[in-house]
Nucleic acid binder design. Structure first.
Lengths: 254, 254
DNA sequence: GAGTGGTCTAGACCACACT
DNA sequence: GTGTGGTCTAGACCACTCC
């Protein structure tokens, strides 16, 4: 063994963990912590590998996994960037409603209601990991596709995480909601889980979607998660599936 | 340049294609062609790399992608195997119904009907890529979870691909349907696409599921695909979502 | 102990994007 | 042209499984 063996301080929880996962964690911490904000270019791979004291292949392995999770984006010849929430990402990663013929489109959003209140909904509390009675912001949207009302959203977020979220800000937002969460509140949604059931449209939803009460509609309950699988948003979407459908591919293509 | 440059014949369509993709294609052809049947162990990575005349890293890159697509399975210390359709794979890759509290379970299947007929359903014809009037096998299943009837399936497959498929064979099958397709008919389902809508239960489905006609239910239309995205099965599932739900995770975890 | 996949290294050269 | 990510090579050693 060489006398001056290289010394790399490793976090205690990293014992026995592959080196590329240690590097991945370090990158995640930097992104979470704001040292690498969304849209920022990472240092070149060779430079990063040098900074971490690992081979470039090891660095690439770590980056590969983050790219697969849509946390980083590689652009050949240009660099590697921290992913941002733009319209495309919304459409392909988080919006699963399309017309029966396969047409995909960014929906037009109308804000229908807004309230800052104490949470009473136990299911929402469980999904958000907070207690009943905590302050939340709740608001309702109507989404139109090709001009038709298709989706009603009831969105609940903890007031603590979204200080300063007002009706005005929601109304004036330029892009998608997750873009707003990211740019204004520093919260990046990295994945979501959805549970779908069929229900009869109640009066309120029927009015918003312009359908007869009792019409079968999809009810999609979504938990949106940020780093570390921390829940940051709970959403109940009601989808009118006469002309549109909820789609998914099981097992991604190459 | 050395006088005896190594010569590797490449398929014309592989011009400009990365070497690891050429290797991947070769592996896929071997699996499709039956030289590597489901369950078979691949030669060791070092041996395979040698056979292809590529570095082991390149071979691993090709295998990595096939593992990500669930076409190969790696088992450390043992070897790499061509994936088979067992109960676990069915449950996690293709069966998305679970109880509201998250309980996942392999359903009990009852065969309710079987017919060999000329296809009239235009939507099914389009999904299967065959013409109206072609011979198909259609059959119906009822799926129970915790003893309750929860799902009704109407499955359509081209008779040409499933020669010798009889009611008896379906009734006697030991495992999942995709296991039967694979072991008896040499057809491996590698992925599927699903489109979901809410409808009112018609009389037939209501009787099978033990619910009132008109109850809102999920209608899931699935196209199951084999290699090269060739459709091999069309399925319309009707799901009673009082106690169970259709789930999905958007963007996989690490 | 022998054989397998899993990790890590240290380089080289290619393809692409911007200027 | 310069700098970036993308591909490919050729090894070494580790961790796991089975005999």
């Amino acid at each position: 063994m060489p006398a001056a063996a290289s010394f790399r301080p490793i976090a205690p929880e990293a014992a026995g963990m592959p080196l590329y996962r240690v590097v991945k964690r370090a990158l995640l911490r930097a992104i979470e912590g704001g040292e690498l904000p969304p849209g920022e270019a990472l240092p070149a791979e060779a430079a990063l590998a040098g900074a971490f004291g690992v081979a470039i292949g090891t660095l690439r392995h770590a980056v590969d996994e983050l790219v697969a999770e849509h946390i980083l984006v590689r652009r050949q010849g240009r660099g590697t960037y921290v992913a941002t929430h733009d319209a495309d990402r919304f459409l392909f990663q988080f919006f699963h409603v399309e017309r029966s013929d396969g047409l995909r489109e960014v929906p037009q959003v109308e804000l229908l209601g807004f309230a800052r209140e104490r949470l009473e909904d136990e299911a929402a509390a469980a999904a958000l990991g907070i207690a009943v009675g905590e302050m939340v912001v709740r608001f309702e949207n109507r989404l139109r596709l090709q001009g038709r009302p298709v989706v009603h959203d009831l969105i609940t977020v903890p007031a603590l995480l979204f200080k300063g979220l007002t009706e005005k800000r929601l109304r004036e937002r330029p892009g998608t909601i997750y873009q707003l969460w990211q740019t204004e509140y520093g919260i990046t949604v990295v994945r979501a889980q959805e549970r779908v059931r069929a229900v009869a449209a109640d009066r309120g939803v029927a009015r918003v979607l312009g359908i007869t009460p009792g019409t079968p509609v999809l009810q999609v309950r979504r938990s949106a998660l940020t780093f570390g699988d921390k829940p940051v948003e709970h959403r109940v979407s009601t989808v009118h599936t006469a002309v549109h459908e909820y789609v998914q591919t099981l097992s991604r293509p190459a």
